[in-house]
Design a protein around this nucleic acid. Structure first.
Length: 352
DNA sequence: ATTTAGACCTGTCAGC
DNA sequence: TGCTGACAGGTCTAAA
């Protein structure tokens, strides 16, 4: 039979656009469905509770909402009559009690995918006598770690060859604490250029700052590089050295890169798939990431690759100069940046 | 205190 | 051809 799960290539990385796209698909595809069975094939995928507790608490619930925060997918699960008694430790006498709602928080990390398997294709998997990663793989769904059977006989699978991703079942009240250390959503109206400026403190390289989830939520290696290219800012520029014009350009660059990504179903370098196992097409719209040596789409200069805080970093040395005067406001500011930039130590940063 | 290195993982590919 | 080892990177934790 056809492989249901993905064939792996090299690098994946679900960032905000990949998670957002999948959230939208799930919203259209699984809202209202009830979970009738849960199978945990790889225990460590479940965080904070045993697979038994996870199964007990999730079975019988209905999917009522799909959300996203940073790179986390949030699946709201309301209680139904059918799961009364399933979890004896919980107080669910009143099934209308929203306090009993659970949130399934999914972080796909490097290689995780959520796949919705239509009923007709789910049948051979449902028939698996002894559920295991191997049994699911031989039935066509490689790397399956968690399988949720829905009330229409469809399957919602969590697959993850690299085993970095985690699923957490929690309660709505715990979410603020869960996300306490996560910065603002870059696509929210409240995230203005001024709001970005306030968060760009410290002397760290701007690339490292953009990857810090406490500063801004949702940027990973691809969209950080793309954002900086759009803004014409060198990845090694100290975060606090950006002029207000540069911050404005970066703000637009971040939003532009993320929105382009969402529009095209995310960027698939390797393993990102949508819930119907389709690759995203945003790769065609990526301008510098993994384009080492190829001509800059703006000026033709070969794209350069350096390492910034252990991460491969791609930029155009012409459009994103270190001594950046072209985007600078006042000449005094610009020369100050040049001095600071030259002082920036090159350790941990080398051209390949 | 802030920042960085290491661990977690396995598929892929360059190089011998 | 087949094997080895480097590499990919999001986030937590430990250490600098």
């Amino acid at each position: 039979m056809t492989q249901i799960a993905e064939k792996a290539a090299n690098s994946p990385m679900p960032e905000l656009p990949e998670v957002e796209y999948v959230a939208r698909q799930l919203r259209a595809g699984v809202i209202g469905r009830r979970i009738v069975r849960a199978q945990v094939l790889w225990e460590r995928a479940i965080q904070g509770m045993t697979p038994d507790a996870f199964t007990r608490q999730i079975v019988g619930r209905r999917i009522t909402a799909i959300g996203r925060r940073a790179k986390y997918l949030l699946i709201t699960l309301a209680p139904t009559n059918e799961n009364v008694g399933a979890d004896k430790n919980s107080d669910m006498q009143d099934t209308q009690d929203t306090g009993d709602t659970r949130i399934l928080v999914v972080h796909r990390r490097m290689s995780g995918n959520l796949l919705l398997i239509a009923p007709e294709r789910a049948a051979p998997l449902a028939d698996t006598a002894q559920p295991s990663v191997e049994a699911f793989a031989s039935a066509g769904a490689r790397y399956t770690q968690v399988a949720l059977t829905l009330d229409n006989d469809a399957l919602l699978l969590y697959t993850d060859p690299r085993k970095f991703g985690r699923l957490t079942l929690t309660v709505p009240d715990a979410l603020p604490t869960f996300f306490a250390a996560i910065g603002p959503e870059p696509l929210d109206d409240a995230f203005t250029s001024e709001a970005l400026a306030k968060r760009l403190t410290g002397k760290r390289a701007i690339k490292a700052t953009l990857l810090d989830q406490a500063v801004i939520a949702g940027l990973g290696n691809i969209y950080a590089d793309e954002s900086l290219f759009r803004a014409g800012i060198h990845p090694l520029r100290p975060a606090d050295s950006l002029t207000s014009n540069e911050v404005t350009a970066l703000h637009a660059g971040i939003r532009g890169a993320l929105e382009t990504g969402i529009t095209h179903g995310g960027t698939t370098f390797g393993r990102h798939r949508d819930i119907y196992d389709e690759a995203g097409t945003n790769l065609e719209h990526v301008e510098v990431y993994q384009h080492t040596g190829q001509p800059c789409p703006r000026c033709g200069t070969p794209i350069q690759r350096i390492v910034v805080t252990q991460r491969g970093t791609h930029f155009c040395p012409n459009c994103q100069p270190l001594g950046n005067v072209s985007h600078g406001n006042a000449p005094t500011d610009a020369s100050e940046h040049l001095v600071r930039s030259n002082k920036l130590k090159a350790s941990g940063t080398h051209v390949r």
